[in-house]
């Protein structure tokens, strides 16, 4: 039975990845889940300089999901390259580094340095709904999405570049086509859906940032639909994500056209869930006499 998949020339032992921002750089999760079992770890977004993020409360549960407005707090690229990436180098798993920025220069400065690192793939976050300058503004306008993709590709060297798209647009296939035109090697989708929760007792917003990104099982059907649409709109490999909590969920995304999948919010409910999903996918393949996982990728037309 083969569970290997290929993302822009990079072979993953299986299609299970972690969703950026839910798994740190794996350091905290390593005691609960064997990182060697995963196809790869997608790290929390890193920027050229440290970012402080948003005020608290930053997270709030909603039915079937959660809202977050962390605001991409991160220690900056220097610490990431000294502490986080070397930690991941100890494991037999792919390292997919998520990059965030406020301006084109911040993205390209980070990518330039990461092009010389041990990262296997770079995932560019142009879709965070919680950061005002930059981020989402690059991901909601096709022209800007194409330009940022070109700029990043120019300095990425040999590293494959996956652009991470926002669902908070009228037509996600337009943005997908734009990043394909800009030279992207692949697409990650979907980032969170922008939402809001009101604390009725305090008569105010539940999150300090007022709005936050909705994730978790509640958004899965939206994500599967968008993966399916984008799979039919571009030729690029896709990393699908949005509410995956078990192997069955992961297989839906594969069948809709994703080559790999990322598990996010489910890590908060069960810190060992990613390795369980790997085993669950293997059991599904075995039970259904599927010799190669690639047979089911995009099988639902």
């Amino acid at each position: 039975m083969n569970t290997e998949v290929k993302l822009a020339g990079v072979t993953l032992k299986n299609p299970v990845l972690t969703a950026s921002g839910t798994f740190g750089s794996g350091i905290e999760f390593a005691r609960f889940t064997d990182l060697n079992k995963l196809g790869g770890v997608v790290t929390k977004g890193v920027s050229v300089t440290p970012w402080e993020g948003n005020p608290t409360p930053r997270v709030m549960e909603t039915t079937g999901g959660m809202l977050n407005a962390i605001g991409l707090q991160n220690p900056g690229l220097d610490v990431f390259l000294e502490r986080d990436l070397p930690f991941l180098e100890q494991f037999n798993t792919r390292k997919i580094v998520n990059v965030c920025g406020h301006t084109t220069e911040e993205y390209t400065d980070a990518v330039k340095r990461l092009s010389e690192s041990s990262a296997d793939i770079l995932e560019i976050n142009i879709s965070c709904p919680n950061v005002k300058a930059g981020g989402i503004t690059f991901g909601t306008d096709p022209k800007m999405a194409e330009e940022i993709t070109k700029a990043v590709k120019n300095v990425a060297g040999k590293k494959p570049v996956f652009m991470k798209l926002s669902p908070n647009v009228t037509d996600i296939t337009e943005i997908a086509k734009a990043v394909e035109a800009g030279g992207a090697d692949g697409i990650s989708l979907i980032n969170t859906l922008m939402g809001m929760k009101i604390d009725i007792r305090r008569r105010t917003f539940a999150l300090a940032n007022r709005t936050g990104g909705l994730s978790g099982p509640a958004i899965k059907p939206v994500a599967v639909r968008m993966v399916y649409q984008v799979a039919h709109a571009v030729k690029l490999p896709l990393i699908g994500m949005g509410g995956i909590a078990c192997a069955d969920d992961a297989i839906e995304f594969l069948m809709a056209g994703a080559t790999a999948i990322s598990v996010g919010t489910a890590n908060f409910r069960n810190p060992g869930v990613t390795a369980e999903i790997v085993s669950g996918i293997e059991a599904f393949l075995r039970d259904n006499n599927i010799a190669d996982i690639n047979e089911i990728i995009g099988c639902v037309k």
Binding site: I27, E28, T56, P57, I70, Q73, N267, F268
Partner: peptide, 16 residues
């Protein structure tokens, strides 16, 4: 005390 998501230090939800 603060609202938390992961409880293990990865999500950065519960900072002070």
């Amino acid at each position: 005390e603060e609202r938390m998501a992961c409880g293990i230090g990865a999500c950065l939800g519960c900072i002070t």
